[in-house]
């Protein structure tokens, strides 16, 4: 077998192993049953503007729950506001949306990504922890509590 053929075979094998590994590491956090989560939303003054239970159905992601109960503003590829939320960011092992703003019946929280952003927190044994995934991939279970906070990048 020629040297080039061996090189091609080794390269293809390495790429295949990488693709399989990335696929195995990719988790899709969607609900397998009906339930509800409890959510707090705070504004730029750290005042709680929303507090309540949000129901979800089978197959919902955390983003789907928010999208069903609120009017969301997402980021485009250039991090500009987009009320249609049509763009999804794709990175190795994850795909999802960046939420810039949330509007409810009597409140609106809007960030610009450059100076302000929405931080997503989960509660682990009563302790508030920053989530390590974006809203499309945040894992959740029935009864879990979350907080979405308006935060500045300078803090």
């Amino acid at each position: 077998m020629s040297h080039v053929k061996v090189k091609i075979m080794i390269s293809v094998m390495v790429i295949l192993v990488a693709l399989v590994t990335i696929r195995l590491l990719t988790v899709e956090n969607v609900s397998t049953d009906e339930g509800s989560i409890y959510l707090y939303i705070t504004d730029e003054h750290q005042d709680t503007v929303f507090e309540g239970e949000l129901a979800y159905i089978e197959g919902d992601s955390f983003y789907d729950i928010l999208d069903r109960h609120f009017d969301l503003t997402c980021a485009t590829q250039m991090y500009q506001p987009d009320e249609t939320c049509s763009y999804s960011f794709t990175t190795p092992g994850a795909k999802g949306k960046v939420i810039l703003g949330i509007t409810g019946e009597d409140f609106s929280v809007m960030t610009n990504w450059t100076d302000y952003f929405l931080a997503f927190y989960t509660y682990d044994d009563g302790e508030k922890r920053l989530t390590t995934m974006g809203p499309s991939n945040i894992p959740f279970q029935d009864g879990d509590q979350f907080m979405i906070c308006y935060e500045t990048i300078w803090e």
Binding site: V14, I22, T26, T91, P92
Partner: peptide, 11 residues
């Protein structure tokens, strides 16, 4: 969470 990115860089 960083493993997929490391894998991409490795390949």
């Amino acid at each position: 969470m960083d493993l997929p990115f490391e894998m991409v860089m490795a390949v």
